[in-house]
Simulated scan of single mutants.
Amino acid sequence: MDWKQIAGPLAQVGATTLGSIIGGPLGTAVGGMVGKAIADVLGVEPTPEAVAKQIATDPQEASIRLDDLQRERADEWAALETEGLKLMGQLAAKETSEGWISWGWRPALSWLIAAIILQSFIVGPWVLALFGLSVAVPYDNVVGISAIWLTIYGGGHTAKAIFGKKLEA
């Protein structure tokens, strides 16, 4: 069960603390516990689908009940939210502590592809028209380079999203 899918509906009815816990980095770890508490308060079975349906059916009643739940267990929710923020900070610190190469190569290559496209489709034709010099990268090369990069960058993330969950389980 993916409890993260109810983070948006929770936020829409004003249960922002619960939504940030479920939608945050701890959502996978504590989503079941928090989701069960939400389902109990709303009087539905403990599934994300049932909770989302109940919120959509009667958002005002859900808002009142969830506000009560947030108030009753405010200390517990605040502690979970704080832990989630600490985890996000640790992840960000780890990413930056490893140096820009570990995280910066993807954006750098994306900007390089953007520069090649700009040079080939905008700058190159202008230089050719004004000065008679051909400085553009051939279009088939631009398309090939872009396709390879999109396959690596986009395809890698897609493969990780599909196969990564299966590998973790």
Score class of each variant (00 low, 15 high):
103 W>Y: 15
14 G>P: 00
149 W>N: 09
44 V>G: 00
63 S>F: 02
75 D>C: 08
68 D>Y: 02
18 L>W: 02
167 L>W: 09
106 R>E: 10
122 I>K: 05
46 P>F: 00
133 L>Q: 15
6 I>N: 00
4 K>L: 06
102 S>A: 10
61 E>K: 12
16 T>P: 04
54 Q>F: 04
146 S>M: 14
151 T>A: 12
27 G>N: 05
90 Q>G: 11
18 L>M: 07
77 W>Y: 15
10 L>W: 01
111 W>Y: 13
46 P>G: 09
47 T>P: 02
130 L>C: 00
53 K>S: 12
147 A>I: 03
57 T>V: 04
34 V>W: 02
154 G>C: 05
100 W>P: 06
142 V>K: 00
116 I>M: 11
42 L>G: 06
141 N>D: 12
113 I>C: 04
136 A>V: 07
107 P>R: 04
52 A>W: 03
135 V>E: 01
89 G>I: 08
92 A>W: 14
116 I>N: 03
34 V>H: 00
147 A>D: 05
21 I>F: 01
69 L>H: 03
114 A>W: 05
34 V>A: 02
13 V>A: 00
70 Q>K: 06
22 I>P: 11
64 I>H: 09
15 A>G: 13
74 A>G: 08
60 Q>V: 13
155 G>N: 05
3 W>V: 04
132 G>R: 03
9 P>H: 02
146 S>K: 13
128 L>V: 07
157 H>G: 14
134 S>I: 13
140 D>A: 02
81 E>S: 14
40 D>P: 06
147 A>W: 07
100 W>C: 09
105 W>H: 05
145 I>E: 07
121 F>C: 13
165 K>H: 09
81 E>H: 13
140 D>P: 04
93 A>N: 10
86 K>T: 15
46 P>V: 10
62 A>E: 09
41 V>W: 02
7 A>V: 07
119 Q>C: 06
51 V>E: 03
51 V>D: 00
75 D>L: 13
22 I>G: 05
2 D>E: 14
6 I>R: 00
67 D>M: 12
110 S>C: 00
120 S>F: 12
103 W>V: 02
47 T>I: 06
61 E>S: 11
148 I>T: 07
79 A>V: 01
103 W>H: 12
5 Q>A: 08
14 G>D: 00
36 K>L: 10
22 I>L: 08
54 Q>T: 08
58 D>H: 04
123 V>I: 15
118 L>R: 06
151 T>E: 02
142 V>R: 03
130 L>V: 08
57 T>I: 02
129 A>Q: 14
76 E>M: 14
87 L>G: 01
110 S>M: 04
167 L>N: 10
154 G>T: 03
154 G>R: 04
141 N>W: 14
83 E>D: 15
94 K>A: 11
